[in-house]
């Protein structure tokens, strides 16, 4: 019944998985940076008093939130290479798989970060904006210097939790066969006929990383709770 055998693992296997992990981290960090910036912009657009702007932002967020990530990744894999081909001078070689994963993933995660940041901005008391304007700040200045720093601080635990979810979601680049950690592990398992063992290893690695990270998040938000 339990006949798992881990003797097939070689240094070369670990090296391939390590390279895969670097790709996972690259996708996750790109999505984090782009997602935070674009998500914050979207959140501000959504709260804008100009109707067209807020409707556009709402449409964007709802669109990406109602289709699965796998679908987004596959669609971008189909579309982005063609767009890139027409933009770049012919003959440029580039990893279109990685490129489309980065773009698709970042745009998708932005929708989720936008919702968190919207809640964050709304959690700042209205008086803060009035006070900033009363001090002579222009609305955008007030947003940048007064509202957003407080919104980020309030939402820090949620933003970090979303980062853990995002890291787990990077495993979905499997659907476009980008060699991230999961896809590498699965590939090695298929090749060596050891898919069961490789999946257990992959699960353990993800668990250790995400569990440690979620403990750290808990610690940070606990400390923050004591300060305020």
């Amino acid at each position: 019944m339990l006949d798992f055998d881990f003797s097939f693992l070689t240094p070369e296997t670990f090296e391939a998985m390590g390279r895969g992990m670097l790709v996972s981290l690259q996708v996750a960090s790109t999505a984090l940076v782009v997602g935070l910036i674009w998500g914050t912009i979207l959140a501000m657009m959504r709260l804008s008093s100009i109707r067209v702007v807020s409707l556009l932002a709402a449409a964007y967020v709802n669109f990406f939130r109602s289709i699965p990530l796998a679908m987004v990744l596959l669609t971008f894999y189909l579309v982005v290479p063609q767009v890139l081909k027409s933009l770049l001078p012919s003959g440029t070689t580039m990893d279109t798989r990685l490129m489309s994963a980065l773009v698709g993933f970042a745009l998708f995660e932005s929708a989720y970060y936008a919702e968190i940041m919207r809640a964050g901005i709304q959690s700042v008391p209205k008086g803060q904006m009035s006070a900033a304007c009363a001090l002579g700040m222009r609305p955008l200045q007030a947003l940048r210097l007064i509202i957003l720093p407080q919104a980020f601080k309030n939402m820090m635990p949620l933003l970090l939790t979303q980062l853990i979810v995002l890291f787990q979601d990077t495993s979905l680049v499997y659907v476009i066969s980008l060699a991230d950690f999961f896809t590498s592990a699965e590939g090695i398992g298929e090749r060596d006929g050891r898919i069961e063992e490789m999946m257990i290893i992959a699960g353990l690695v993800y668990f250790v990383i995400c569990f440690a990270a979620s403990r750290a998040v808990k610690h940070i938000s606990h400390k923050q709770g004591h300060q305020s």
């Binding site: 787990q168 979601d169 495993s171 999961f182 999946m199 257990i200 699960g203 668990f207 995400c210 979620s214």
Partner: peptide, 22 residues
């Protein structure tokens, strides 16, 4: 804690390949 810290795709592979073995 276990279920939330392992990606769903890994869990589905585990259910498909490993659980039937057990």
């Amino acid at each position: 804690e276990i279920v939330r810290n392992v990606p769903l795709i890994v869990q589905l592979f585990l259910w498909y390949y490993v659980v039937p073995k057990l």
